[in-house]
Design a protein around this nucleic acid. Structure first.
Lengths: 249, 249
DNA sequence: CGGTTCATTGAAGCTCATCAAACCCCGTGG
DNA sequence: CCACGGGGTTTGATGAGCTTCAATGAACCG
């Protein structure tokens, strides 16, 4: 039996995949490819013919605006799946590219959908992945819309720490971090210059240092406080009820 | 046969629902309820037991941040569905509330999922709806992250015009518009004061006037130009390929 | 080495936030 | 009928946060 894809390993923590489902996914995997930094795998407006699991390296989902500027919607790290997740044929609503050299598993979308039809748990796994992606997008909107630069940055670092931890790529001390300040700027809706100043402020606050290819977490409590971080959106466990004005109609 | 829900009417433009699917949806509809402005129907962190179709009135998806400020993620207009869309049990990752008096069709999530199991086209309809919601979220990230206040506002107006047009609530002259400037501010990541000044600028540019319960579109070409608006994300028809650095590996 | 990419810092300016006040519309009650 | 109050809108004044432009430095690499 082939080595399990990192997607299988990770998603199994959320949805109980049986032997059958794991086998199906492994047999589906047409091939493993490598890619260079900057290479696009999914292009805005074009049909999506494949699904990809990032096995190694980082990528991003992004959109370009008319004047050429880029908005990164989310980063993609090992274990993440990108690509078609439903049977409705449509154009990609965003592009996906590699930010570092990458190694990906490729799945033809047709056979993927085929398989999902037969294995309800596999469908559940993809639904889970889709919901999680959406939750991260929501978080990004709140970030960019209502939080300051330093809060956004701290929030992003904590999100990445959590996600990388799930696949064994982060621990309490930090994680390897291949992104440039420009990529951070494009993700956070800031300029490179301001990202640089923000990183300096974070460093001077003794919470975290970012640079030289690594995030070094100095004081995670401070970081959580700066970010107002609540990690529950990353796994969706029901929380205690909050105050509300729901009516008992 | 009962009058078709506005959701059925609208979604049929995207996915061909047969008699069977329409019947199923109509029979599922447990009841129609009314709600007051400010009333919550889905609460962040709580389980989602029902799906709702907005038949009349406006709502919003939103999140609150620690200090009490609100970020509106998207507006909900007649014909829109909100609520659970998959079988994975999880907590709501955002809240949904009414912004005006509303009238909603309520669907118990259990029987909804049941029905979706049996009718693949119904599942496709919900998948389509989910993807469309996600596309709008992406657009909002690009808006808030990379566009100026006036561009965001113009963009939002055009998106709403398009969506309301699908259910016959907007034409070339404009549409009825019940939102306050504060709601606009919460959606666009701005303050009320700045929204007010932005609306004045839009009015003075002779593109659109917003107020007194109505959006009056004066010159839609100007508006499209200001917004850099491309409506394709609202229906997902494959577009002509753009320049890219995709490799033909 | 010379070239390229990325990080860093300074100076100046613009967008947008904040604080404050006035105004308008409209419904309510004295 | 008018005073009152409240939600929403509008405007001014001031300042913070972020952008822009520009220049330098550090690291890497063919």
């Amino acid at each position: 039996m082939a080595e399990a894809s990192s997607f299988v390993r990770r998603i199994t923590t959320a949805v109980l995949l049986g032997h059958q489902e794991r086998e199906a996914l492994n047999s589906l995997r047409a091939k493993t490819i490598t890619g260079r930094a900057g290479q696009d795998f999914i292009l805005y407006g074009e049909p999506v013919d494949y699904g990809y699991v990032f096995e190694r390296g980082w990528g991003c989902r992004y959109r370009l605006v008319e004047d050429g500027r880029r908005q990164i919607l989310n980063f993609v790290v090992p274990g993440d799946y990108v690509g078609a997740s439903g049977s409705v044929i449509q154009a990609a609503d965003h592009s996906v590219s590699a930010l570092t050299p990458v190694e990906l598993s490729v799945f033809p979308v047709a056979s993927l959908m085929d398989c999902v039809e037969r294995l309800p748990r596999l469908r559940a796994a993809f639904e889970w992945s889709t919901r999680r992606d959406q939750a991260m997008l929501l978080e990004r909107i709140v970030d960019i819309g209502r939080r300051s630069a330093i809060e956004r940055m701290a929030h992003l670092i904590l999100e990445l720490r959590h996600r990388l931890g799930l696949v064994g790529l982060a621990d309490d001390s930090g994680f390897d971090f291949p992104l440039t300040q420009e990529m951070l700027a494009d993700a956070l809706g800031l300029t490179v210059v301001h990202v640089n100043r923000t990183l300096r402020r974070l460093r001077e606050s003794d919470a975290v240092t970012i640079g030289s290819g690594r995030v070094r977490i100095v004081n995670i409590d401070d970081l959580v406080r700066i970010a107002d971080f609540d990690e529950s959106y990353l796994h969706h466990i029901p929380l205690p009820a909050k105050t509300s004005n729901r009516l008992t109609s």
